[in-house]
Amino acid sequence: MTIHVWNYLDEYDDEREDILDAVQKVFASGRLIMGPSVEGFESEFAAYHGLDHCVGVDNGTNALVLALRALGVGPGDEVVTVSNTAAPTVIAIDQIGATPVFVDVRESDFLIDTDLLEEAITERTRCLLIVHLYGQCADMDTIMEIAERRGLPVLEDCAQAHGARQKGRLAGTFGKAAAFSFYPTKVLGAYGDGGAVATSDEETAEALRRLRYYGMEKQYYVVDTPGHNSRLDEVQAEILRRKLTRLDTYVDRRREIADRYAEALADTGIITPRTVEGNEHVYYVYVVRHPRRDEIISELKAHGISLNISYPWPVHTMTGFSKLGYEKGSLPVTERLAHEIFSLPMYPSLPEERQDLVIKALRDVLATS
């Protein structure tokens, strides 16, 4: 048996009856597209966050694309973000013809370095796209102060931060809008693709509803502003409704797993995740750090443990973004981290005995090298 960083099958065994009931409910409803399940999930997800609107879309990448468009960002504009993120964050900026401008991250928590944020803002900047990475929030007090002073909207990338809080406030409730992914691995994951944008701004919500549905508003086939076909699937929405009621339970279990790792690996030389003061981490992935990362991954693979790297290639170093002109060394912390970070198995249904095998294998490898 290979132990992976993520596996949904144990969770499915536990929740099979509810998941299949969700599918049956949709199939028997007579509404497969934009029906009561989408409407219900949107209402419930918005309410969970204390926001006025949630607009379901087909995936997290398009949640970012549509949110940027709804905020008025377009060709020729600049969007400030980080390179230490999943590529879709930056792909979304590129897809609307805007230019990503990267800020380095802090070595202690891998989140955007707010001391460097303001110097990245130019007269072309139209949005700050803030990534809540790995399960905890960036420094939103500082970010919102800069954004408000400079008159810039903040779009939160919450793909990895469902249920995370900062000073009691949920991720996604600070900026003008927040984009979420419900890809199956996420803290709140569907059984396929899915995404949403949450906001309390009425104008932004109305724009999002048009953009996800070809640009149509009042009448089918009448396009006001050309948009996309980016609707949340009715089946996935019903599954997400059921799983939303268990989100806090998922988060609690992730924290239990994280605590076990931290205690068991405290004396090994592996740097475990640091939770920023005021944050409540949800551990979407459990990212650790060690200078011999590649050797460790290789040796654990021989033990039947397949680890992951989030992320081995910073976006600014990828061939597809070479046009941006970032040279090696331009984001030194981001680049250094990419050679040392790796992810341990982390998902709510991870059995303790499998986690123990991972811990033992790590300790054995580090003790004998």
Rank of each mutant, 00 (worst) to 15 (best):
V105C: 08
E39L: 13
V55G: 02
L9M: 10
T85F: 06
C137D: 04
V90F: 10
S29H: 11
E118L: 12
P75W: 03
Q95S: 09
S43E: 10
V57N: 11
I91E: 09
L129D: 01
C54A: 15
L66W: 00
D109L: 10
S83F: 00
T114R: 06
G72R: 10
H49P: 00
I121N: 08
A87I: 08
I130L: 09
H132E: 06
R31A: 14
N62M: 11
I121S: 09
A98G: 04
E17V: 12
A28E: 14
Y48T: 05
T61F: 12
L111K: 04
T85Q: 11
L133W: 08
L20D: 03
D94Y: 12
A86E: 00
R124K: 13
V55N: 05
Y134R: 06
C127H: 01
Y8W: 15
V79M: 05
I112A: 03
D139Q: 07
V90Y: 03
D104C: 11
L71R: 03
C127I: 05
Y12H: 11
F45A: 03
L116E: 14
Y134M: 13
E119T: 14
H49T: 04
L51D: 02
D104L: 10
G74R: 01
V65S: 01
E15V: 15
T61S: 10
T114F: 04
R149H: 13
H53P: 06
I96K: 06
L9S: 08
A98Y: 01
Y12S: 08
A67D: 03
G135W: 01
A120C: 11
V23L: 12
T125L: 00
A86F: 00
M140V: 09
A147V: 10
V101S: 05
D10A: 12
